[in-house]
Design a protein around this nucleic acid. Sequence first.
DNA 1: TAGGCCATCTGGTCCT
DNA 2: AGGACCAGATGGCCTA
Length: 258
Amino acid sequence: MDSDASSTCSRSSSPDLVVDDSAGSFFSNNMFQKYCQENRNGSEADQGMTERYGGGGKTKSRSELSKEEMQDLRLKVNSRERKRMHDLNQAMDGLREVMPYAHGPSVRKLSKISTLLLARNYILMLSSSLEEMKKLVGDVYGGGAAAQSRSAVHPTINPAATSVHLPLHPLAQSLHSLVGSTPAALQHHSSSSSSAPAPHSPPSGSFLGFHAPGQGLLKDPLNLGGSYRHFPGMPCPCTLCQPLPTATSTLHSLCMNK
DNA sequence: TAGGCCATCTGGTCCT
DNA sequence: AGGACCAGATGGCCTA
């Protein structure tokens, strides 16, 4: 089929794309015109279809359909499918927008599979962070003795030392390994957010939580080095530099093994 | 040039 | 019956 002529709407998941839901806009393009021409010229591709077509009041079986009716039916189905896929891509774009990776015109967007994997692991990370936060709050308000005994067992939980000697969340380690620096060397919110737009670094396979087979399917989609850019409106990735919850020690084991 | 990613078409299946 | 959903096929674009 001549999907090539549809280049006007290819890469429709691009954030710039304005998806026009009206079938007419799709059908006004060259693809459609060429498609119609080719089909009117005697394409036999649709022969053998048995679906029924309900145009013009009385229902006909497909074998009774004229070529024009078959074309109309096929185009209608194609249009629906196209719209469905566009909607799916819009949802994917919406997901990309809230993902903690760099956005910008100079940055290639995440692939679909990367977006889904990243989203999954991001949710896991946030969930574990929330759990850990609940524990800490419980310690603070639950009683000093308990907190003291806890800090004796887990000195890194001591709030006074929290910013210095925290075991990294596995995800944070992955992030930091991307940056190529230790957490202590990481720039913090003030410096990174106030600085000029830093080079964007996409999540690598390790951040996505899978073990990419060599340089295979899910290699770094942006192929960029540089430091991680903090996600606008979201906590700095350095908030990942918090005590490793026991529950989250399994985060990597939860990661997708694709 | 090969591989990855994507959009589109298409036919089949399931659901309402 | 019609529409949604799915997966396979196809071909284009881009990058290493």
